[in-house]
Amino acid sequence: MSVEIKFIDKTRASEDPYRHEDGEGREYRYVVQDNGTLAIFEKEESGYIQGNADPIAVYGAAAWFSVTGDPKTKKDSPPARMRTL
């Protein structure tokens, strides 16, 4: 699924809404941080986003005003590994 962002800056009107998507079936998720920044993550081929993954893009709080798509949830994290004794 793609993530669509609407920017505050009207000079970017040709990109409004801007989409993170590609034709190869990759999926993207977003996270709105406590400070208002918007982070975009790309799911790996395994279908998960690693806990230490860096976002592919970060937009400051003053850059955007709307985002649609799928937010990052616990379902996007890989399953916990079980330890055997």
Rank of each mutant, 00 (worst) to 15 (best):
D9I: 00
G23M: 06
F41D: 01
M1E: 10
A61I: 07
Y48V: 01
A57V: 03
K75Y: 11
R83D: 13
K10M: 04
E42L: 13
Y28W: 09
S14T: 03
R12F: 11
L85W: 14
D16S: 14
S77V: 07
K10S: 09
I5A: 04
T37M: 12
E21T: 03
V3W: 02
G60H: 13
P71M: 08
F7Y: 08
Y18T: 01
R26H: 15
D76G: 01
I5D: 01
G25W: 12
K75S: 15
D54G: 11
P17Y: 12
T84P: 00
Y30E: 06
I5Y: 03
K43P: 02
G51I: 07
L85V: 09
E42H: 02
I40D: 03
I8M: 12
G51V: 06
G47S: 11
P71Y: 04
Q33H: 14
S2V: 05
D9H: 01
Y28N: 00
A13I: 11
D34E: 15
I49E: 05
G47V: 09
S66K: 14
A62I: 08
G25D: 09
S66W: 08
T11Y: 10
K74E: 15
T84V: 13
S14N: 07
S46P: 01
I5M: 07
K75Q: 13
K74Y: 05
E15Y: 10
P79D: 07
Q50G: 09
G47L: 07
E21P: 00
V32L: 15
S14H: 07
Y28G: 00
Q33R: 14
T11K: 07
A53G: 03
Y28C: 01
A62W: 09
T11D: 13
P55I: 01
D34I: 03
K72F: 14
R19Y: 13
P55A: 09
D9R: 03
T37E: 15
D34V: 04
K75F: 12
D9A: 02
D70C: 05
T68P: 00
K75V: 12
K6D: 11
P71S: 12
F41L: 03
A53M: 08
F41G: 00
A80T: 09
V32Q: 13
P55M: 02
V67E: 04
Q33G: 02
D22W: 10
H20R: 05
D54A: 15
S66Y: 10
A62S: 14
L85F: 14
Y30I: 05
V67H: 02
G60F: 10
L85M: 10
P17C: 07
D76K: 00
Q50M: 14
S77Y: 11
E44L: 04
I8Y: 11
R29G: 01
V3C: 03
G60W: 11
I40P: 00
M1I: 08
E42N: 04
S66M: 11
G25L: 06
E27T: 15
I49G: 01
Q33I: 03
I5L: 08
K72H: 10
P78F: 03
V58H: 06
P78T: 02
L85P: 06
P17F: 12
V58D: 10
G23A: 06
K43I: 14
E21K: 02
T68A: 14
D70I: 05
D34P: 09
K43M: 15
N35G: 06
W64M: 08
I49S: 00
E21Y: 07
G36E: 14
D16E: 14
S77G: 08
G25F: 10
E15I: 04
V58K: 08
P17I: 10
I8K: 07
N52K: 06
E44C: 00
